[in-house]
């Protein structure tokens, strides 16, 4: 998640230590969003481009993800969190991790309190291309392709549009994240590095969002999307 490497470098630690420290931030944010009544929370854990990182770092990252899933599965389920993954298509994902991801989704599929979408091996363009393929496969005539009908072919079509994207560590790019869904999203760019990101930072971001004058989307119960990576 954004700033893990810098966080580690500031402490003269290996990059992987930054990824390790990120877990606490993830749990804190999920908890904060849950308490705030956020119904849809998405985390950008790993992009399709992240596969270009050194193999050793990827290996550690995958292990961390798997450990986190196993460690927190029960408490997420107990809190009524429905966990979903976005992406997860690459054959390089080790089968035990894929199995755990499938198990976590199966376990929590009927929960409704909050939906946590973990974008893992995700690429916004890829999702759009896949949706186009799906439309063509279904033989939808061109005049029937609308924004609404197109969106129904995206993964997790029940997911509402993103209201707020939080990108940590001062980075100000989209980086191929849910390109279709962020069309009208508000963006905030806190300077804090992801491993230091805590509930109070999340509250601040929600506050910023509440003060903004939005033309699209409701403001009663905000849905939020945290952007790490």
């Amino acid at each position: 998640m954004d700033g893990n490497g810098r966080w580690a470098a500031q402490r003269s630690l290996p990059r992987t230590a930054g990824h390790q420290a990120a877990e606490a931030a993830v749990i804190d944010v999920i908890e904060a969003a849950h308490t705030a009544g956020v119904e849809w929370l998405s985390l950008y854990a790993f992009s399709t481009e992240n596969w270009r990182r050194p193999a050793a770092e990827i290996d550690v990252l995958l292990r961390l993800v798997r450990r986190a899933i196993r460690k927190h599965a029960l408490s997420l389920h107990a809190r009524g969190v429905r966990c979903r993954f976005l992406g997860v298509a690459d054959p390089r994902i080790p089968p035990p991790l894929a199995r755990d991801i499938a198990d976590l989704m199966a376990l929590t599929r009927d929960n409704r309190r909050m939906t946590l979408t973990v974008a893992f091996d995700h690429g916004g363009r890829r999702d759009i291309v896949e949706a186009a393929r799906s439309l063509i496969r279904d033989g939808v005539p061109p005049e029937q392709v609308t924004e609404e009908s197109f969106a129904r072919h995206l993964p997790h079509p029940d997911m509402p549009e993103v209201d707020l994207v939080i990108r940590t560590s001062g980075e100000q790019r989209i980086s191929n994240f849910m390109l279709w869904q962020v069309a009208y999203a508000e963006w905030v760019f806190p300077e804090v590095l992801w491993p230091d990101f805590r509930a109070e930072h999340f509250w601040e971001c929600l506050d910023v969002y509440r003060r903004r004058d939005r033309r699209f989307g409701g403001v009663q119960v905000p849905t939020a999307t945290g952007k790490g990576a």
Binding site: R66, L74, P94, P96, A102, D103, L104, L107
Partner: peptide
């Protein structure tokens, strides 16, 4: 079954 598997140890590399 999913919960059982998630709660029991399993090696990363089969």
């Amino acid at each position: 079954g999913a919960l059982f598997r998630l709660l029991t140890p399993s090696p990363m590399t089969p």
